[in-house]
Nucleic acid binder design. Structure first.
Length: 261
DNA sequence: CGACTTTGACCTGCGC
DNA sequence: GCGCAGGTCAAAGTCG
């Protein structure tokens, strides 16, 4: 079921995500999402739905155990750097603890895997994921000294849903020249092409209009909070261009989009 | 020709 | 220790 898959996709904040998915009816009817998210009760109700639905219960223990462990690491790690030893190829530094960063995950209904977000990305890997028919792609920000990575995968149950997980924080501005252009990038997020459903991990990344409800979500999992919002009716005109599209979606976290090294 | 993608191999962590 | 799964590297190929 998709719930199980999503638990694997999001290594922390599973409860929140699971709740949101169910609350929004993502696996079945996307037409309801806008209505549900527009109401402030969406998040509240989502919590009550958590872990009560069929299909995800049997994995809860193991998943949550894993989640706890990972979330602990996530919270302590704010760096965006790759953990690999410099210039040593595939080998990671021995004894270095593998740490996962707080992720910012977006669920986006899109036909294309790689969504333009204003930054330039280079694909460096692709792997088949267990329990998913769709491979996961790995991208890295092409800007030098920017260690931001992202993973892109498709929803198991609904291939039209693209799940993009960002790791790290950009320490630079959006490149002046994009493959395409900014307007094209904006078009990627336009309602005509897709229905953005950002699932945000990390306290403080919540859109202002939903942050009042965020406490319900943040309280459970600890670490990176997974968060979903499907009704971003933003216009990108008049926004600060340096933060890019994601910044438009999430006005608050300048530290995320413009992290200093 | 530079930027990017593809893809198989390799490495690490983790559970058994 | 072994096998699995996830993540990464890097050579080769592709594209504009």
């Amino acid at each position: 079921m998709s719930d199980e898959m999503f638990k694997d996709l999001f290594y922390s904040g599973m409860d929140e995500y699971e709740s949101i998915v169910r609350a929004f009816g993502i696996t079945s009817d996307y037409s309801n999402i806008n209505n549900e998210i527009s109401g402030t009760t969406a998040m509240n109700s989502s919590c009550s739905l958590s872990s009560s639905d069929a299909g995800g219960g049997e994995e809860d223990d193991s998943v949550k155990e894993k989640e706890k462990q990972i979330s602990k690491d996530v919270v302590e790690d704010n760096g965006g750097e790759s953990s690999k030893a410099a210039g040593s190829g595939k080998s990671k530094k021995k004894g270095e603890k593998k740490e996962r960063e707080a992720g910012v995950a977006f669920m986006t209904k899109s036909e294309v895997d790689h969504l333009e977000d204003g930054y330039r990305w280079r694909k460096y890997g692709q792997k088949a994921v267990k329990n998913s028919a769709y491979p996961r792609s790995y991208y890295r920000c092409t800007t030098q000294k920017c260690g931001v990575k992202k993973r892109v995968e498709r929803s198991y149950e609904d291939p039209s849903i693209v799940i993009t997980t960002y790791e790290g924080q950009h320490n630079h501005l959006i490149p002046a020249t994009l493959r395409g252009n900014l307007s094209a990038a904006s078009g990627t997020f336009s309602p005509s092409m897709l229905t953005p459903m950002p699932v945000v991990g990390g306290v403080g990344f919540l859109p202002a209009e939903l942050s009042s409800n965020a406490g319900n979500n943040q309280a459970v999992g600890g670490g990176a909070t997974v968060y979903s919002h499907n009704n971003f009716d933003y216009t990108y005109n008049g926004r600060q261009p340096e933060y890019g599209l994601l910044q438009d979606i999430f006005p608050a976290p300048s530290s995320f989009f413009n992290r200093q090294p």
